[in-house]
């Protein structure tokens, strides 16, 4: 995982970047609830200049899924 994404996750989940594992998901990361999910999506949009469709917002729940989405949608 890129440090840029790791730092972003750390900011949203109010934790240190070292605490964000490559397999981070709602099961492994405390506080990853539906509110944080939305905050995470909005933070991704701002950081990478992408627009995430509403029906995708609740699906991007793992680091690999997020990375794949960013790759496919021309993240800056």
């Amino acid at each position: 995982m890129h440090d840029r994404l790791r730092n972003l996750l750390a900011g949203v989940f109010e934790t240190a970047p070292e605490e964000i594992g490559d397999d981070a998901s709602p099961e492994t990361l405390p506080g990853w609830d539906s509110l944080r999910q939305l905050e995470l999506m909005l933070a991704l949009e701002l950081e990478y200049g992408v627009r995430i469709p509403a029906d995708t917002m609740l699906d991007l729940q793992t680091v690999p899924a997020i990375e794949e989405f960013l790759d496919e949608h021309g993240a800056q």
């Binding site: 539906s34 509110l35 939305l38 905050e39 909005l42 469709p53 509403a54 917002m57 609740l58």
Partner: peptide, 15 residues
């Protein structure tokens, strides 16, 4: 506002 947030979370205000 952000219409997506209304439908996903019943939020009437964006960040």
């Amino acid at each position: 506002r952000d219409e997506r947030l209304w439908y996903l979370g019943r939020m009437r205000l964006s960040q």
